[in-house]
Design a protein around this nucleic acid. Structure first.
Lengths: 197, 197, 197, 197
DNA sequence: GATGAATGAGACTTCATTCAT
DNA sequence: GATGAATGAAGTCTCATTCAT
């Protein structure tokens, strides 16, 4: 009674969430078009028809996924550990590692978004939003510390992000190599510091 | 023996090439799974069944596309203009602009490969190949000029490529802005030079 | 013993009746096969499942509708206003207008029955019953006043009914035109009198 | 070669026509909504998918049916036998019998149109057109012979048609009785002559 | 070489019906 | 009595693929 949700409603919400999670998993594995509602239902352990009790269409599942997984709080979390007294190098090292953690933790979502962005303008917009959502706070944190003007700093930060994400998607995801990763992140962060200082 | 091909053979080859080009266009627009053979046939101006006279299956068209468009010669062309007497800055500026030109000229192929790479391991390998295919020659050209060791230089070059490609796919392609592009390429090239020198 | 029904029983009966009325409305609008139980429940302002608390099946709703709306008393009411001292013309004029009123007042039911009669033999029988139910009393009222033999009179009365019902269903219902209707009913009644006198 | 259609095209057209005929048969039996495309395909002896090679949708089949079976030439044929020297009675007798023949010969189409007219405005319009298409020529043929004014004659003719069609749909079709039919048609025609002379 | 009719598997979606709460 | 989550069968439609012409 505390939260006004009956057990029945709670279970319904659980089922709905399970469907969203299953859809995310299936979509990210096969791509949206190649995924079937049957796959999703089976993954969620329910029958086909139930999807349409909760969602208007297969496409609707994509919106539900994006609504549920905003990434925004992940990005904010990433920057929570940043403290003013840290050195620039420390800040950047912390940032690239946090970003990489977030990519790993949200692997399915990232893969889904990058995969579908090429053909769905709405998702492409979403992706652009995520990119700038991550870039802005770091640019702000580094504002006073850099010899670059605002514009150049923005470019640099965005390039940093692009590079790390691509490294994850193309190289790391296929053949994870933790040692190589460590070198890569360290080198990339240091090179970034060279640029801005 | 001039060319040893009858007019019929020539026409057949033309038709086949037209089908490959049409498939590339359609696949890059809708994605492989969401494209239909009917779409492709219509785009090529032939009837449905003819595809199966030239190709074993829809999937086979992907292989044919990749075989026909290697990008390798594009990448080599990119570097053809590089001359030993150019300054490092000039070399890098030339490189990022050539790379960007290549992306624009091969838009469909790039979009197709990036879109399908997430779900087709063969294509992912192909993508990885392209990436290193582009990175190696630039790394070689810069070898003697950089204070970085080989490993760090490789990371830097790869990051440069990742960044430019992402910039193209996510930002430029959706809303082309030539002025902003110019700033971006200049800044990115310069920042890269800062790293390696 | 006043009425011997608890409030709950009363409410149950109300709900059931509301469901029957809603079903009639929906069926007559979309036809039986194209109507969904969800439509009906929504129209009645209850949830899907409740229908099956009151009715065995969707088909069962049709029976319930037909049971509740017999039309018999409407037809009898139609003839209640007939008095022996009225002229034949007056009787017939009164009859066609009463019949038309009944059609308007029972529009949904009439549309439903005519629409479904083609594919449901039970409903076709019901329709035949309605037709003769209306024809017999008029034939009786006119028995002594006509030069026609019983058989011919029956045909004439039935044709009168058929014509008026069709006029309602095909012409009036789609584009009501009260003036034209008035002409039509007057002419039709007069022509009928010409036949039987 | 004579007509420029290859045997292949001819067979395709036959298949298409067979599908239209099958659809008409199935629709008129079960009604549009309750008919399945599988029913239609089976009736035509082809597989489900082929329907969509020839028609855009199930609904499209209705339009194709209506286009193919105009009834207009049937109605004109009905009146072809009318000759100026025939007596009015003969003309009307001929007309009602021709009309009835047409109903029997086009049973499926008539049943379909009457059944769907209640819920499809387009079909209702089509039905209204058929009704007036049949009424006008008879009214014209009788114009000089009747004491009725134009308006009254139109009403009378329309009522005649309505009555015969309803008789066919409701009474005859369910339990055909040739003797009773003969009485009915004779009586109805005679009564009509009484009205107009 | 080219056509397009035909197939058949399977996709998305709807919906009557059941049942635990 | 009332709810609405869940089922599962079936329906419309799509599409890769085959093949006779």
């Amino acid at each position: 009674m505390a939260n006004g949700r009956t057990p029945r409603q709670q279970q319904a919400e659980e089922t709905k969430n399970r469907l969203i999670d299953s859809a995310l998993k299936v979509f990210s594995t096969k791509g949206f078009a190649a995924s079937t509602t049957k796959d999703i239902a089976k993954e969620a352990g329910v029958t086909d028809g139930l999807i349409y009790h909760y969602f208007k269409s297969k496409q609707d599942l994509i919106w539900a996924i994006l609504e549920r997984h905003t990434l925004v709080h992940h990005i904010q979390g990433m920057l929570a550990g940043l403290k003013p007294e840290m050195s620039t190098t420390n800040i950047v090292q912390h940032y690239v590692r946090s970003l990489f953690q977030m990519l790993k933790q949200n692997n399915d979502l990232i893969v889904l978004i990058y995969g579908e962005a090429q053909r769905d303008p709405d998702i492409r917009d979403r992706l652009a939003g995520i990119v700038s959502g991550g870039a802005k706070p770091l640019a702000a944190a580094l504002a006073g510390r850099s010899r670059l003007d605002e514009d150049a700093l923005r470019h640099a930060v965005r390039n940093l992000q692009f590079a790390v994400v691509q490294y994850y998607l193309i190289l790391y995801r296929t053949r994870p190599d933790e040692e190589e990763l460590e070198h890569y992140l360290t080198a990339t962060a240091n090179q970034f510091v060279t640029i801005i200082e």
